[in-house]
């Protein structure tokens, strides 16, 4: 499969097509800058289909241009009556058969790719992660590891990571364009599976791709791809994280108390128990606050006081604590750094 497609790819790399397309978009976000097994496979399919389509388009446009120039009614031809042709068997067979052949050329790799990407049977899996979507955030539970995070998904470079997807409320769709295609997360029993295999380290954009409410466009997350060794280290650190660890500064200690009294009913620190809000175990390492804001203290305070200002329609209540308390909670949250591996290591 790969080799066959590789030949095609080499062919078209010579042409300008690939070059033009790969100039499009931002690294780690664009589907045209693939950096994972799935995204590369799909990129090849795109190039193949675009090439076939451009061929068809050129044929159509050649006939079209010729016809419009050659047969345009000219002065003095007003009374000319053209021959009333009924049709032409040979021509009609040609433009029926050739498209069928072109479509077969496209259909075979399509079906191969569909089955390739659906190969998520559990016996192959070494890393399995349960992904749960909710309005408007993502929870990641590492199966068998007692690790839970949200918003930042850590995976090792070059390894297949198997995802099991479900939703806690409405339908969402999990999409990391540069690494793989998307799949919906459904509520109820309709669980889906897919896999990620990233070829380059980095922090990738992830997005929700199914309309899920007012903040659909703000339901971003990140995939942090680190080296396998760093990943091992991260897993170890996360497992050893003490949810009740006492912060160093007194402000943060006060913040911890306020957090325990006001926020713990929804937000978990550590893998258990699961909260209805995002897990905050490694909040201090997050590359963004709530997926969209820079991780500064002001932003965190602002978010705590008025989350709906930033993500309309989300279910976190505003003003649970006053501004001063929010500042202390922010201090506490920002020092939650159980692992020495952070998104910085992915760059």
């Amino acid at each position: 499969m790969k080799g066959w497609m590789g030949k095609f790819r080499a062919l078209f790399m010579l042409g300008s097509l690939s070059l033009i397309l790969s100039g499009c978009g931002v690294e780690k976000l664009s589907a045209l800058k693939p950096a994972g097994y799935g995204a590369e496979l799909l990129y090849d399919l795109m190039i193949l289909s675009i090439a076939i389509m451009i061929f068809v388009f050129i044929v159509v446009m050649a006939i079209y241009t010729f016809v419009l120039i050659r047969y345009r009614r000219k002065k003095g031809q007003e009374d000319y009556i053209p021959k009333q042709t009924e049709g032409n068997k040979v021509l009609e067979i040609i433009w029926t058969v050739i498209p069928i052949i072109l479509l077969l050329v496209l259909a075979v790799p399509t079906v191969q790719a569909v089955f390739d990407l659906a190969e998520t049977s559990s016996d192959k899996a070494d890393i399995r992660i349960d992904v749960t979507s909710a309005q408007f955030w993502w929870q990641f539970d590492y199966a068998g590891e007692e690790i839970s995070t949200s918003q930042d998904l850590y995976i090792p470079k070059g390894k297949r990571v198997y995802l099991t997807m479900k939703s806690a409320d409405v339908i969402h769709s999990f999409w990391v364009p540069s690494i793989a295609g998307k799949i919906d997360t459904n509520p109820g029993d309709n669980e889906n599976t897919m896999y990620l295999e990233a070829n380059e380290e980095g922090v990738y954009w992830g997005q929700c791709a199914e309309l899920c409410g007012p903040s659909h466009s703000l339901m971003d997350f990140r995939v942090v791809v680190v080296s396998p060794e760093e990943y091992e280290q991260w897993v170890k650190d996360m497992k050893n994280a003490d949810p009740e660890a006492k912060p160093e500064t007194t402000v943060a200690q006060e913040g911890q108390k306020i957090f325990q009294n006001n926020c713990m009913s929804c937000h978990a620190i550590g893998a258990q128990p699961k909260g209805v809000g995002p897990n905050l175990t490694n909040f201090g390492d997050r590359s963004k606050v709530a997926g969209i804001l820079e991780p500064t203290k002001e932003n965190i305070v602002d978010w705590i006081l008025n989350p709906n200002e930033h993500k309309p329609g989300n279910s976190m209540p505003p003003n649970l604590v006053n501004k001063e308390e929010a500042g202390k909670v922010a201090e506490y949250l920002m020092q939650l750094k159980p692992s020495e591996i952070t998104p910085e290591d992915a760059k």
């Binding site: 399919l45 790719a113 295609g181």
Partner: peptide
């Protein structure tokens, strides 16, 4: 029509879908 055929490539649609 051509982009329609591209969308019919089910696997590639994992990238195109809902974009």
């Amino acid at each position: 029509g051509m982009t329609g055929v591209m969308l019919a490539v089910a696997a590639a649609d994992y990238q195109y879908h809902d974009t």
